[in-house]
Design a protein around this nucleic acid. Structure first.
Length: 743
RNA sequence: GGGCGAUUAGCUCAGUGGUAGAGCGCUUGCUUCACACGCAAGAGGUCGCUGGUUCAAUCCCAGCAUCGCCCACCA
């Protein structure tokens, strides 16, 4: 053993043990162990990701649990893996292409996907290496990817079965459209943000009495082109006599009806008269349904082509003009036209919430288009209800419990899940269309087929070669891919080999706990519960430990643009991985965000150093005489530290059982520094210096060593590297502290 | 509009029905033979406000205030 320096240097220690542990295979789960299993599936980080503090926290907590259970002798399986992250990854690769003067349309779908796979080969594994450095004791021989072959099989199987059950359907609905990503988004992929906008007041003249007009208020004047009615409140004396009459839409002079609608119209708001644009607003869509109004969609390139293709007699020139406009320009243009023709009454400042894409922050537009949906709350065959019951009946525990109202609130009002995305990177939807049966197939300029809303899909596990209806062979696969979260919803069983009936599934499903942060409770956790119950007929995990977000010292979200990002890799290099892990654990109190400051990490770096030097002290005292481990404690100090150690073991264990990482860490800190070092080692110095009978000295030496050895095992799940390093220098039984018994 | 949480030492945060704790910071000593990433001693808090329950409340209850987060269709 090399000399111990006065200051603990984590770097060589960490590098050494990572390799030793991996080579020794300590993290591998056994398929023929008699020990009770303990299983966690990792929340798969995006392949585009680099380790940030959220990952560091998440995986530190999982690793603490996993190492703790492993030391208890459980047959531990922690399954690692990564997420293909559809939109995020596609965006990254598209940016790369742009830098090369290319784009995906030029490349074509096949080449583009190839290119993304190349990108993943090159960069997609970076985060896995970083997790290893963090000390994550995953079974790395079982690394999974949400888009690998086995997971694709699982995805297809689930899709086909849900479709057979009528729980997946294709239909034309109003969805959230990101004009930048050129794809549909699910409801929860839209972030609402209070924004200072404008309210436009516009004149709509009556069709047969143009001198009489209604003033309507709108925040989106450009959607006027798609208006199909104006609504007033049926009990509003100002307007209700007009119900049933026609009104002229400015600019186009299209005649649209005035309808009475008590649900849509708030008499107090605006002017009490509302334009209805069913194809561009969720409320208006429903109002349109109530009154049987047509839907006219006007914006977005794809949207425009689609909606005009579906109409007869489209003026090609109008189409071309509209094609050139983006949403922001359309608004300016339309307002200018309105003003010039005297339809604009006034513009006021107005605060309202607008939706933005969670990936690129572009303003999301409601857009009418054919998409695929999962029917989540079918009254006869609900996916949501069993998932609600499982939590209500405490088969699944949310920890802390305070998340339950949130969970129930969301699940009980859940809407159908839009799962199709108009991107290329992901699980392509296993549905095909026969060109003979569906003669209305068109293509976009980039060659992507446009499948009409009436087209009848052929859903199949394997690529079909013939249309079952007409025996035609010209089959086109649906160009859309599935929402990334569709494949991650299957993660707890797809990673164990489902749909094959594997021994892994039998042994490790349901998993023991899911460790995650609250921001993906709906994206991921709720959907895993639904899918697990549906396809395994069993909950996917017993506990869900929900931890907080890591913020900067001022409580701000860390972001590159704010420049307040603390990079865990830098922290690990500067203070040591053990210090970072211990800090995160010590600050992980339930239901509260972590405001991380570097000073705190420094404090725990000092703690590691304290332990290091206490150990040096122990070794110095062992050099002179052999150790007599079996000697009984004699002095009051010996007995006292024994009692305190037992108390500490009790607290740590109890707190870990309750996922109180912070309390467990604090007990360890308190005991090691302020009891073992400050009191015990000071008290026995006189004994060791030979001021006491020989037997007392021997007892002190033995107690000193035994206590240190025990507390190292106690601390190991939190600080794996330094504990292994010291433990290996002590007299010990076994090959590694990783597999030593927990006290 | 609904839900959740926060408000405790200068800062970041634990905690308990019976006169408050940690880390960092601060003050004053220490080249004490493990450690200055240290040791010792110390200063510093009417535990957001107002009521209520209780022998007793920072902790339980109600209301209020401020802040934060999530959800929600107000044009």
């Amino acid at each position: 053993m090399p000399e111990m320096s006065k200051v603990y240097d984590p770097k060589p220690v960490e590098a050494k043990w990572v390799q030793v542990w991996l080579d020794a295979g300590y993290f591998r789960a056994s398929m023929d162990s008699q020990q009770p299993p303990y299983c966690i599936v990792i929340p798969p980080p995006n392949i585009t990701g680099s380790l940030h503090l959220g990952h560091a926290l998440n995986n530190t907590l999982q690793d603490i649990l996993v190492r703790w259970k492993r030391m208890h002798g459980r047959n531990v399986l922690w399954i690692p893996g990564t997420d293909h992250a559809g939109i995020a990854t596609q965006n990254v690769v598209e940016r790369q292409l742009k830098a090369e003067g290319l784009n995906r349309e030029v490349l074509g779908r096949e080449k583009f996907i190839e290119r993304v796979w190349q990108w993943r080969e090159q960069f997609g594994g970076i985060i896995i290496g970083q997790l290893k450095r963090l000390g994550a004791s995953c079974d790395w021989s079982r690394e999974r990817f949400t888009l690998d072959e086995e997971r694709s099989t699982a995805v297809k199987e689930v899709f086909v079965r849900l479709h057979q059950d009528g729980l997946i359907y294709r239909g034309e609905r109003l969805i959230n459209w990101c004009p930048r990503c050129q794809t549909a988004l699910s409801d929860i992929e839209v972030e609402h943000e209070e924004t200072q906008g404008k309210m436009y007041y516009l004149k709509y003249p009556l069709a047969d009495e143009p001198e009489i007009f209604l003033t309507i208020a709108t925040t989106r004047p450009e959607t006027l082109l798609g208006d199909t009615a104006v609504a007033v409140h049926p009990e509003d004396p100002r307007y209700n006599k007009l119900i049933g009459r026609q009104i002229l839409l400015p600019l186009t002079h299209r005649k649209i009806p005035i309808v009475g609608d008590p649900i849509l119209v708030d008499r107090e708001f605006g002017t009490g008269a509302v334009k209805i644009t069913p194809a561009h607003d969720f409320n208006d869509f429903e109002a349109g349904e109530r009154h049987g109004l047509p839907r006219i969609s006007i914006f977005d390139k794809k949207a425009r082509i689609q909606s005009f293709l579906d109409q007869e007699g489209v003026d090609k020139e109008v189409l071309n003009d509209l094609m050139q406009l983006d949403v922001a320009m359309a608004r300016t243009q339309v307002v200018k036209w309105l003003d010039r023709r005297g339809y604009l009454v006034k513009i006021e400042d107005h605060k309202h919430a607008i939706g933005r894409c969670y990936r690129c922050k572009s303003i999301v537009e409601p857009f009418l288009s054919p998409q695929w949906f999962v029917k989540v709350n079918d009254p006869k065959n609900s996916l949501a209800q069993p998932a609600i019951d499982a939590v209500r009946q405490k088969k699944i525990r949310l920890i802390p419990e305070t998340w339950e109202p949130n969970y129930f609130g969301w699940m009980e009002n859940i809407k159908d899940w839009c799962i199709s995305r108009q991107i290329w990177w992901g699980h392509q939807i296993p549905a095909w269309y026969c060109s003979d049966c569906n003669p209305m197939l068109h293509t976009y300029p980039d060659g992507t087929p446009i499948i009409s809303k009436e087209a009848k899909p052929i859903v199949s596990r394997t690529d079909p070669t013939q249309c079952p209806a007409c025996k035609g062979t010209k089959l086109v696969q649906d160009p859309d891919v599935l929402d990334t979260w569709f494949s991650s919803a299957l993660w707890p069983f797809s990673t164990l080999g489902w749909p094959k009936d594997t021994p892994e599934l039998k042994l490790f499903y349901p998993t023991n706990v899911l460790v995650t942060s609250f921001d993906i409770l709906f994206f991921w956790v709720a959907r895993m519960i639904m899918m697990g119950l549906k396809f395994m007929e069993e909950i996917p995990f017993k506990d869900v430990y929900i931890h907080a977000l890591v913020r900067d010292p001022e409580g701000q979200k860390m972001s590159k643009s704010k420049g307040n990002v603390i990079d865990p890799l830098e922290v690990m290099a500067k203070y040591g991985t053990d210090a970072l892990r211990f800090t995160l654990a010590a600050m992980a109190s339930p239901g509260r965000d972590i405001k991380l400051s570097e000073q705190r990490i420094e404090g725990y770096r000092n703690f590691a150093n304290k332990l290091w030097n206490a150990s040096r002290f122990v070794f110095i005292n062992l050099q002179e005489r052999p150790i007599e481990k079996t000697v009984e404690p004699r002095s009051l100090a010996d007995q006292w530290i024994g009692v305190r150690l037992q108390k500490c073991i009790g607290s740590v264990t109890r707190n870990l059982e309750e996922y109180r990482f912070d309390e467990a860490a604090n007990h360890l800190y308190q005991f090691i520094w302020h009891e073992y070092c400050d009191w015990y080692l000071e008290l026995i110095k006189p004994h060791l210096a030979g001021e006491s009978p020989k037997a007392d000295a021997a007892a002190a030496r033995a107690t000193m060593v035994n206590t240190l050895e025990t507390l190292l095992r106690l601390l190991h799940p939190f600080m794996p590297y330094i504990t292994e390093e010291i433990w290996k220098r002590l007299p010990h039984a076994g090959d590694s502290i990783v597999v030593a018994p927990y006290p």
